[in-house]
């Protein structure tokens, strides 16, 4: 599969080492549609290709939006891109969050760190006038206040959903919770019959979040999470993303906890 060429239409520095790119197709054709939770393979010229989640709205049909943390070779090359610069894009790939299952439900969005990026398209869809969710609650944990994503947007969202935030480390002026985001769940009342949870973050954080939700009798079938593994092809051919019987690139990255819980609690799978 050959990547399509996109160019950076807008670049936003979220905080040092983390940035958001709005990318637009070089040719006049519109971008392909996607589901919240899906991802693209972004190719930085000569450096390599990495999986990056969709983090824009499905309704914004002119661009894909990606929030990226700089780590190694490829993400460093992506960080160098400025407005007008080009990159290769393959996608969208994978199975996303089951938006259709939110009708009539209280939706619990639980994000740890960069895990908010893959949940953002879902926030947009749930806040849209077409959404049939009864209630949306976002639990967001970050390292510290300066390392919170989308801080301006969070303020807007707060008008329309219940937002609870927590940081690992308080900085001067931080008025809210300190500690793991999962602690916020402990203090939350959940109606297990009428709730659905979507979790994204480091595996250890997702483990604790699931533990809390199960304690509150939320059925396994009402819990969804997004997994991350090394990926080369994104189309089920290279074998790298295997996780037990699943290929994360095509069977995930979003999984229903009910389907995968025996594997989720095993190490080094």
């Amino acid at each position: 599969m050959i990547p399509d060429i996109f160019y950076v239409q807008r670049r936003i520095e979220e905080y040092p080492g983390t940035f958001t790119l709005h990318i637009k197709k070089k040719e006049a054709h519109p971008r392909l549609s996607f589901q919240p939770g899906q991802f693209n393979m972004l190719y930085a010229f000569g450096a390599g290709e990495v999986p990056i989640s969709m983090s824009g709205s499905v309704y914004n049909t002119s661009v894909y939006i990606h929030t990226i943390r700089t780590l190694g070779q490829v993400t460093q090359a992506l960080e160098q891109l400025r407005e007008g610069d080009q990159l290769g894009v393959r996608g969208p790939f994978g199975k996303g969050w089951p938006v259709g299952k939110t009708a009539g439900k209280t939706v619990l969005l639980i994000a740890g760190g960069l895990g908010l990026a893959p949940l953002r398209p879902l926030v947009y869809s749930l806040l849209d006038k077409n959404s049939a969710a009864t209630d949306v609650r976002l639990f967001y944990g970050a390292k510290s206040q300066p390392e919170m994503l989308y801080s301006v947007e969070l303020k807007h969202w707060e008008q329309q959903l219940t937002l609870q935030t927590s940081v690992d480390m308080a900085t001067p002026g931080w008025q809210s919770n300190v500690g793991a985001v999962t602690h916020l769940l402990t203090a939350t009342k959940i109606d297990p019959e009428n709730s659905i949870a979507f979790i994204c973050g480091p595996e250890i954080m997702m483990r604790f979040a699931i533990q809390e939700l199960i304690k509150k009798n939320l059925p396994r079938a009402s819990i969804y999470l997004s997994m991350e593994r090394n990926m080369k092809c994104a189309i089920g051919h290279c074998g790298h993303c295997q996780w037990g019987p699943a290929f994360i690139c095509k069977d995930g990255p979003v999984f229903c906890y009910q389907e995968i819980y025996p594997w989720f609690h095993r190490q080094e799978v």
Binding site: Y43, F45, G46, A47, G48, E49, K232, C233, H237, C238, G239, H240
Partner: peptide
């Protein structure tokens, strides 16, 4: 069937290649 890919550039930096190989 597992494979990996290798992305490379030449010295000029203007030509890049992608190779796939058994992994």
């Amino acid at each position: 069937f597992c494979s990996s890919v290798e992305d490379t550039t030449d010295l000029s930096g203007d030509h890049a290649e992608r190779w796939e190989q058994w992994d």
